[in-house]
Design a protein around this nucleic acid. Structure first.
Lengths: 170, 170
DNA sequence: TGGAATTGCGTGACATTTCACCTAAGCTTT
DNA sequence: AAAGCTTAGGTGAAATGTCACGCAATTCCA
């Protein structure tokens, strides 16, 4: 191990702030989605990942890696979502071990409806409290961390993916 | 509503980075704790919150708010943790509706053991990838966001609390 | 003081998630 | 092409989490 030991006080401050934000934000997002649409936050994560995938379709394994879930959780969850007609599953023709999960027409509509309120909440809770001049540094910081996690972590790197409401065209 | 609509591209960048970091990090922390100690991340969150509480003890309601859980989740979880002798519950003498959850001797030891590996992981995944000069801005940014969430969100503000490995004395 | 409203929690039914294991398809070697 | 490996997924039971409701202690107020 590189150096062992504690975090210094500057790092403690950053970590404390991070944890606090993440706990509250998750709670609030869950709550908002649940009450304003028929989606849970996990539902939303799945739909979002699929919505930007090439042809709106992704193998289970890839989907799991994208959103940091156990494979079997995706398996169960996707089955339930299929019953609600949010996604559909089919066997890949090229490799018949893989199941492709695909966003249905209905799923896309539901996601797009839900995204409005969700993005609104994100703006209100996250960005309304963030001074413009810190947006850049924050992005940089988190991107650096992300890159490092990809390099150090155990999860395979993602294919291109972004949460809903985040597009390429500005 | 203030202005409705989408996030601008600077904000999209920040949000994308945040989501990516949070999904991966949660996954990795869960995994590390599970394999290196007998604790789940939820267990760890509970122990951590208690460990810094005044007299190592907290009403269920307060604990729930601290860590952003539903009250009843805390209720169930704490009961299970009590069976493992990590915490203990008792009725408050001043208000006999409230249940005080308290960290046991054993619970504290388990937490302290687990914290070593956990902090090590946090350093490796989070701080090794974060340039020193961005630590300050990151802290500031997240603290601003946090303050705003407290103000705007639905959860009551926390009493003083910090995750394990984060202390006052530098 | 005596309801009525509020507050803090526990509970049980139900939903979700995890874990260990299973199957089957592709791949490699012989 | 069969044996053995590896990889993608599904599955069922157990652990965990959510939701709606109920109970009891406290508070409010007429």
């Amino acid at each position: 191990m590189p150096e062992g030991g504690w975090l210094d006080s500057q790092q403690q401050r950053a970590w404390l702030a991070y944890i606090r934000v993440q706990l509250r934000l998750t709670y609030e997002m869950n709550r908002q989605l649940q009450s304003d649409s028929d989606l849970s936050l996990p539902d939303y994560d799945v739909l979002t990942a699929l919505s930007v995938a090439d042809r709106g379709l992704m193998p289970i394994k890839v989907l799991a890696a994208q959103i940091g879930w156990e494979r079997s959780r995706v398996s169960h969850h996707v089955r339930r979502m299929a019953q609600r007609d949010l996604v559909s599953c089919s066997l890949s023709t090229s490799d018949r071990r893989v199941t492709e999960v695909r966003l249905t027409r209905h799923g896309r509509r539901v996601l797009e409806d839900a995204a409005v309120g969700h993005v609104e909440l994100v703006r209100r809770l996250f960005f309304d409290g963030l001074p413009r001049e810190l947006e850049g540094p924050l992005s940089q910081a988190l991107e650096s961390v992300y890159t490092n996690i990809i390099a150090q972590g155990t999860l395979p790197p993602p294919v291109d993916w972004r949460p809903h409401g985040v597009s390429d065209r500005p």
